[in-house]
Every structure is written in C-alpha cells, then in structure tokens.
C-alpha cells in the first residue's frame, strides 16, 4: 500500500515538525489534551511562565514548576528564558505576590507533571524527553518555536 505508506510518512513528518522544538534536547512542553494549542512561540511561553499572559487557548493558564536542580526544567528555562532556574523561580514568586500570576503547581517528577497537566485545561508543564515518548491521551506535546 504505497499510498498509505506515503501518507503515514507525511503524517509522521508533520507531527514531528510540530513537536520538534518541544522535544529539543532533554525536555518537552506538554499541555492538557482538552486545550488544543499545538505550538507556542518562545515569547508566548515566557509570557505564560511570568504571568503576563493569563490564558492559554481561552482557558485560565496555570503552569507547573519543578525544583531548581531538576534537569529537564533547568534545560527548559535555559533554552527558553536564557536565565538560571533560580532567577525564573524568583520572578514567578514576585509575580504571584503582585497578583499577576496564579500560584504555580509544584511537581517533582514527570509523573507529577503529567498528572497535574491532565487535571485542567490551560495547564502547562515540562517533562523529560523520555517521558514525552509515552504520554497518556490526557496531555499532548506543545511545540516551541519562533
């Protein structure tokens, strides 16, 4: 079935293109499956993680954070924000205090992140690339580009 094979390859290419930046190196950005956003710009992600943007696809946005020394989260912060994780966590602390940002949910593992992101539309989290390979249907990958 050459046509089916070509279609599968094209579908694979398109899906991977959308997920490429999310899966760069050792982390992946995931969102709740009820919220269909497939791709966010780097600027959008920064705005969501600092309270400037308050919605994701029409739902109230809430982000999941991980400990300062957590490898996937550290790499995510380094690549998207270009700052140390400690600095981002301090910024989030201040934005919550300002009333600009919903208190983030805290996770210590990929399973925690998946569970929390599954819980409500508008929730965003970071998992390891390894965990991104076997996500439940309650979450989906979000590409980061631009």
């Amino acid at each position: 079935m050459p046509h089916r094979t070509i279609a599968s390859v094209l579908a694979a290419a398109l899906a991977c293109a959308g997920a490429r930046l999310a899966l760069a190196d050792s982390f992946a950005l995931i969102g709740n499956a009820k919220e269909p956003t497939a791709k966010l710009s780097r600027s959008d992600v920064k705005a969501l993680y600092t309270g400037k943007a308050k919605t994701l696809g029409g739902s109230a946005a809430i982000v999941v954070i991980r400990p300062e020394a957590d490898a996937p989260f550290t790499q995510f912060v380094d690549q998207v924000f270009g700052i140390p994780t400690k600095t981002l966590l301090a910024k989030i602390h201040q934005e919550v205090f300002k009333g600009e940002m919903t208190t983030p949910l805290k996770a210590t593992s990929d399973d925690d992140v998946v569970r929390l992101v599954s819980g409500a539309p508008g929730t965003l989290g970071v998992v390891s690339a390894e965990a991104a390979g076997h996500l439940p249907t309650t979450v989906h990958l979000i590409g980061i580009g631009g």
């Binding site: 599968s8 579908a11 694979a12 991977c16 390979g133 439940p136 990958l141």
Partner: peptide, 14 residues
C-alpha cells in the same frame, strides 16, 4: 525527535 507511533501512544491512565 520522536516517531509518530510514540506520539500517538495511548495510555489508559485516568
């Protein structure tokens, strides 16, 4: 980059 098969993995976790 993960293959489509992995992206499409369906888990039964509620």
């Amino acid at each position: 980059m993960l293959p489509v098969g992995m992206l499409a993995t369906v888990c039964t976790a509620s």
